[in-house]
């Protein structure tokens, strides 16, 4: 076997065994979606409410789409692994979207829920929507921003 391949193979084996249970050295980090304890201070929440719309599906999708704006959430003083929840709730459409993002440090986080398809004929009017942002962990759960908006179809 060629030296370069052998060296690469030995390196891989060395790293694998050296970071395994026998060595006690753990190089893996928590999953990005793993929530822990802790808290965070939210200093700013930006949501373009005008982008919350109902519009027809395109490219052969015979549905109405609830288009949901992203939320930009600025946090400080983060401890451990709390998560941000961006919740869009429209009871009239029986829709409740929740986008979550675990935060591990200060900064601005973007939370963008997927648009929601609604079967044809079920979203022909105007509906009250509630948009909220929460900070949540195993030790805290509080709503830091909340607003209501009316969303109507543009058929």
């Amino acid at each position: 076997m060629d030296r370069s391949v052998a060296a690469a193979g030995l390196f891989v084996v060395f790293v694998l065994v050296g970071t395994g249970p026998l060595s006690g050295v753990d190089v893996t980090s928590a999953s990005p979606s793993t929530v822990g304890d802790g808290k965070a201070t939210v200093t700013d929440v930006t949501v373009d409410q005008s982008e919350l719309t109902l519009s027809p599906g395109r490219f052969g999708t015979n549905v109405t789409y609830l288009r949901v704006p992203a939320a930009a959430v600025t946090v400080e003083n983060v401890t451990d692994r709390p998560q941000l929840l961006y919740i869009v709730s429209i009871p009239g459409l029986d829709v409740r979207l929740v986008e979550r993002r675990v935060v591990t440090g200060s900064g601005t986080y973007r939370l963008a829920p997927d648009d929601r398809a609604i079967p044809p004929g079920r979203a022909d009017g105007s509906y009250d929507a509630a948009l909220s942002v929460r900070v949540q962990s195993f030790t805290t759960d509080r709503t830091v921003a909340w607003t209501t908006v009316t969303v109507g179809g543009r058929q």
């Binding site: 065994v17 249970p21 753990d26 190089v27």
Partner: peptide, 12 residues
């Protein structure tokens, strides 16, 4: 997985 961390086992 008795000698290699599971995630790294897949990478290996």
């Amino acid at each position: 997985a008795t000698v290699v961390a599971p995630r790294l086992l897949l990478s290996g």
